[in-house]
Design a protein around this nucleic acid. Structure first.
Lengths: 317, 317
DNA sequence: TTTATTTATACTCAAATTGAGTATAATTCC
DNA sequence: GGAATTATACTCAATTTGAGTATAAATAAA
């Protein structure tokens, strides 16, 4: 079994990383400079050089340390992307395969150009103030008109977007983005030359270069899912924090609001928190500061936040 | 940012696939011929040739169709493996990166050489007759002696193997295998030249070539986890089946026994089943034959089997 | 210096889900 | 015909979940 004949284009491997953090209610991702021509950003990436790095994660941590300069917590391989037509290869040039990674940090850059709000790219994913009106106003009509010609995708669309009374599943971020791409409603579909794509994107939301919005969607979906069964949220938190700060971080990631009392009950029962005895100073009653107990001695060892959403922030009493 | 200078070894991509099925209580994986020298089998794989296949999954389905000749249901990318030292590359030769895939089939080859019982490779994973005695007799003593010198891995080992009263998590198949590998207790650790590895493997269980047992462990862990929240089990079933057959398949995959009455309640409530009206003929009371209702109209759309184990088969009344 | 406002925390309660049974029905085996 | 075997129906207590009310401790405003 021959792999490739001499003269065939070579394969190169990129490690594209979604570095994610939160900052006071915004959900942030590290991006690098916009393409001067198309004005779109991209994820930081580095090449995988097998001779230099024993594993891909070691390689990734090195160039992230050099180029981005933030400390990383949880790092996780997401998916390997190799679809032709979504990475703009010139014929004859080496084929680039992207291995997507998710990396969490608790050091975001605030309001700098480099850190951007993730919900800029997926505005339909933020339900903290209730269902975004663009779903009913723009997305569903456009999607339905495409589904009329693609009945075989109806079931996927129902599940991904929670139509016909099905619940909205926070974690289906990738499935939703891919449906919008397939339907030709986002800018990347036109950039990739799909024949059904509109020259002007139908659905609001900033684009990224190549398939980086797809990688970011994968990262957000995976993070949202993982939050529910692994204690990864603490990699987004500072050393000490109040329960309300913890809840706001969870809400920011999940894009929903949570029931405060039940969140407290859940998180206290989990055994991951250790009271520091100190108090936060803020407006109302001071809140106790907690820290993450690393040597988790809980009976439900890896429990995360099996959250259920509360009311929307706007309707709070 | 240069990817690779001319003269650097090329990167090749393999698609290594764990094709998994069940056959009357055995948990099977398709393997290809043993290495004549080491007598170990390997997973089927094929090269990814970007010029020929638009996506990796298309390429995979094609060569699986040609070489293996079974129909595949659910296909899912698992992980991309590129660790140096676990793939036996000759210096100067091209670097091989393996993209691991899980594929499900309901057509297994019965007792042929090509289909092997997965629990041959992971005998400690089969708890259907209670906790395998090798855990207490062999694995735990050997692991503990290694952990005495590697205190930093204690917490992982407790969680992976469910020690100190923690529950055994069926889905941590990869985590368990990797700990045994790290501790030098499986044959591959010696084959890879790890300095702490025993020449004769301490822990029972057949080895595979390269890192294929690791890929298989990833596949089994992913399948066990997915079973609990997606209806993938039906890709392992024939067209029609009884509830007991369905339960046995779930037990085979998960490696535990389940409470019969509660399994029935769970699966009936899920809305995935459609009664055919026909009955199975077997020993005791005939059972109704069901089929999978593809256009799932359930309120809990993607619910899988949130199973909880019952008593062991041997202790059944 | 009260009083309102804000935030934190404690506790309640009904509904739903889960874990583990018992009871009974419809077959085959002997 | 009776025992064994398998399938299915139903029960019940414990736990978990969803959604509150009640109260405490601070600051801001009157």
């Amino acid at each position: 079994m021959q792999h490739s004949k001499p003269g065939e284009p070579q394969i190169l491997i990129d490690l594209s990383t979604a570095i994610i953090g939160t900052d006071g209610g915004t959900f942030q991702c590290r991006l690098v400079e916009d393409d001067t021509e198309t004005k779109t950003g991209r994820l930081p990436f580095g090449p995988f050089v097998p001779d230099q790095h024993r594993t891909m994660e070691i390689g990734l941590r090195q160039w992230v340390g050099e180029q981005v300069g933030v400390g990383l917590g949880h790092v996780e391989q997401l998916y390997t992307f190799a679809d032709r037509g979504r990475q703009h290869t010139t014929p004859g040039a080496p084929h680039v395969v992207s291995v997507g990674y998710l990396a969490l940090t608790n050091q975001t850059g605030g309001q700098t150009r480099a850190w951007r709000d993730i919900y800029n790219f997926f505005p339909w994913e933020d339900w903290r103030d209730g269902e975004p009106s663009m779903l009913a106003d723009i997305i569903y009509p456009a999607l339905d008109s495409w589904l009329a010609r693609h009945a075989e995708r109806r079931a996927s669309a129902r599940l991904a977007f929670g139509r016909d009374g099905l619940p909205w599943g926070e974690e289906y971020v990738l499935e939703r983005y891919e449906l919008l791409y397939e339907a030709g409603l986002v800018a990347e579909a036109f950039a990739d030359g799909r024949e059904n794509a509109m020259p002007t994107p139908v659905v609001p939301g900033e684009a990224l270069q190549l398939d980086h919005r797809r990688i970011l969607a994968t990262a957000v979906g995976r993070l949202r899912a993982k939050l529910k069964y692994r204690p990864v949220i603490f990699d987004l938190m500072p050393q000490t924090f109040t329960l309300t700060q913890l809840q706001h971080t969870a809400e920011t990631v999940l894009g929903v609001t949570l029931h405060k009392q039940n969140f407290r009950r859940l998180v206290e029962k989990s055994g991951f928190l250790e009271a520091t005895g100190k108090m936060s100073k803020a407006r109302g009653r001071p809140a106790e500061l907690f820290k993450f107990r690393h040597q988790e001695r809980s009976e439900r060892p890896l429990a995360g936040l099996r959250v259920s959403s509360g009311r929307t922030r706007s309707s709070e009493a």
